[in-house]
Design a protein around this nucleic acid. Sequence first.
DNA 1: ATTTCCATGTAATGAGTTACATGATTGC
DNA 2: GCAATCATGTAACTCATTACATGGAAAT
Lengths: 211, 211
Amino acid sequence: MARSNKSRFAVLGILTFGPMSGYDIRKVFRAGPGHFWQESYGQIYPILRALESEGLVERRIEHTQEGRPPRKVYTLTNRGGQALRDWLPEPTEPQPPRNELLLKLFFGRHGGPQLCAVHVRRSRDALRETDARYADIEHMLRTHCKDDPDAVYQLMTLRYGQHVTKALLDWCEESLSTLSKSLPKARVPSRAEKAGVGKRAAGRRQADRRP
Amino acid sequence: MARSNKSRFAVLGILTFGPMSGYDIRKVFRAGPGHFWQESYGQIYPILRALESEGLVERRIEHTQEGRPPRKVYTLTNRGGQALRDWLPEPTEPQPPRNELLLKLFFGRHGGPQLCAVHVRRSRDALRETDARYADIEHMLRTHCKDDPDAVYQLMTLRYGQHVTKALLDWCEESLSTLSKSLPKARVPSRAEKAGVGKRAAGRRQADRRP
DNA sequence: ATTTCCATGTAATGAGTTACATGATTGC
DNA sequence: GCAATCATGTAACTCATTACATGGAAAT
């Protein structure tokens, strides 16, 4: 069976901020909950149709300029708001985690510590940027949006990201330190490189199975 | 276009631990990188076929007992090992994040602080269990698997999880504190409840759009 | 008695992204 | 002149889970 469709509620939720077009919704996703949730056009437009046919949103057509598609502005209906409030108390189901960085580090022996360090450093750089963006958003939420009753909640989701980011920056340092200590040894044998034989594979040893 | 298939390499990587059946591979996924990567049978079996047809793994059939399916044990070939090593240096592409908890908190005003607190507490409980499991794994890695050359790398991925878990536990406490402060006020108006009118939707106020 | 484990695999279903099509306007 | 923005939408495609089918043995 399918895991219940959360995208519907994400769209519904965005519409609590006010009437919007599908195009706008996508922009709000990027600007707001972008670090923990996003939707593409391929999702948004069909979902809006479905929501309208169920009476959860209402569509109004705005004829803007000739020669280009008319804006279709969607408004949350009372039933739509109720659907959102009905969904909110539902327990969250954890999404299956997939972390490519960790996957690569898990098999890191076959690339060696230096390569792992490259990945970790890249990750660290990205985290620093994220951290900076978070700081901007925090500033905005604490100053410009002080009156907004949503701000408290949005700040909470931001704090989540900030906590995680700080923790991961610590982890990066720790890992880089670990990796630098195991630098020369513990490298998986790669005779091919040394001999400069190009494509020939190096001898592969077989570890025994874990319990 | 498709984002390159990481599952293939996940399977390839597991096979560096030794020859295994598809069934085994799934078990190893659960026991090992389970907190950041998993694969289902529906992925594993077709992938093994594909890998075999590409010469990256070799299949050997073990006739165990009559009346039940024969074990098919897969072994990494040299080319398979090479494919893995070719993939390892590739930069990781970040997966689009999806966090249902944060999505609900983001729209938390419509459920109120008490409801948000319920979600956070649930999350905290789950994190504590995770933390405990991590401690077990850490103990195992530091004692029983000391000789294993993979242990260093696996420990790194574990530390990642531990850092995140600790950070999120902190965040939970912080958030619960915030929520308890905004307990009585800041509740979105819900006249329907008070009047006991059941399904009639409460008046919904329209916040203005965020930039 | 009933569940879990072993062990394979397929079919149905769904979630979600990306690329394309269209075409005027605004900014660099 | 070139790219981005506005604004809609669809079709093709990938990724992945889940349920089903089979059926004996061992564990609780």
